[in-house]
């Protein structure tokens, strides 16, 4: 079977209900926007292939329901994630304050070296802003993660956010391979094998 990608990264979107996780994902995967709020039931995912440094990377992005009643179902997906987007709504202070709780959730359920990023969504609604850019930035600095304000509606920074997260995951992975040559040895050997058309392998943290 011919492989269509070099890496598979699994990303996860979390945050309060109604902050726009599904819309951010819809903007990234479909480059479209739907203004009607349709709350996510349980869990869903979209796949988009991007190219980084000449490598084809499949991003399987899991979209979780923000509602409390699906918490048991959604936390099961933390462990497999290599990158997590924490999303809040800049017009909704509560959703911003809850980011701390979401981070606690990550610490509890996700793999320890998971890449994280904070997104302040709905930045097109500046007139209704309840959380300043600085406060968002401040929180990100405290947790040592990257931060961006996005707008799924206006298509601001969505593409950049996912590319940034993917690039960071890729860098971290390559670092790991470099520092543990024995672990990655098998893969490198395969790379030189004449029969293999391309060395493609899947990176997973299970």
């Amino acid at each position: 079977m011919a492989k269509t990608y070099d890496f598979l990264f699994k990303l996860l979107l979390i945050g309060d209900s109604g902050v726009g996780k599904t819309c951010v994902l819809f903007r990234f995967s479909e480059d479209a926007f739907n203004s009607t709020f349709i709350s996510t039931i349980g869990i869903d995912f979209k796949i988009r292939t991007i190219e980084l440094d000449g490598k084809k990377i499949k991003l399987q992005i899991w979209d979780t329901a923000g509602q409390e009643r699906f918490r048991t179902i959604t936390t099961a997906y933390y462990r497999g994630a290599m990158g997590i987007m924490l999303v809040y709504d800049i017009t909704n202070e509560k959703s911003f304050e809850n980011i701390k709780n979401w981070i606690r959730n990550i610490e509890e359920h996700a793999s320890s070296d998971v890449e994280r990023m904070i997104l302040g969504n709905k930045c097109d609604c500046d007139d209704r802003r309840g959380v300043s850019r600085q406060r968002g930035e401040q929180l990100a600095v405290e947790y040592g993660v990257k931060f961006m304000e996005t707008s799924a509606k206006a298509g601001i920074n969505v593409e950049q956010a996912f590319f940034t997260l993917a690039r960071d995951i890729k860098a971290k992975m390559e670092n790991k391979l470099a520092s543990h040559p024995s672990k990655g040895g098998g893969t490198q050997l395969k790379k030189n094998e004449p029969q293999k058309k391309s060395s493609t392998w899947k990176c997973q943290l299970l």
Partner: peptide, 29 residues
């Protein structure tokens, strides 16, 4: 589409493929 079988594999990985585990989990949830 994420399935990634090595058809020349000498020995199995000893556990089910990642994509399939995800698929089953997805259906369950």
């Amino acid at each position: 589409e994420l399935a990634n079988y090595e058809w020349t594999l000498v020995e199995s990985k000893g556990h089910a493929s990642g994509y399939l585990m995800d698929l089953v989990a997805f259906l369950q949830s």
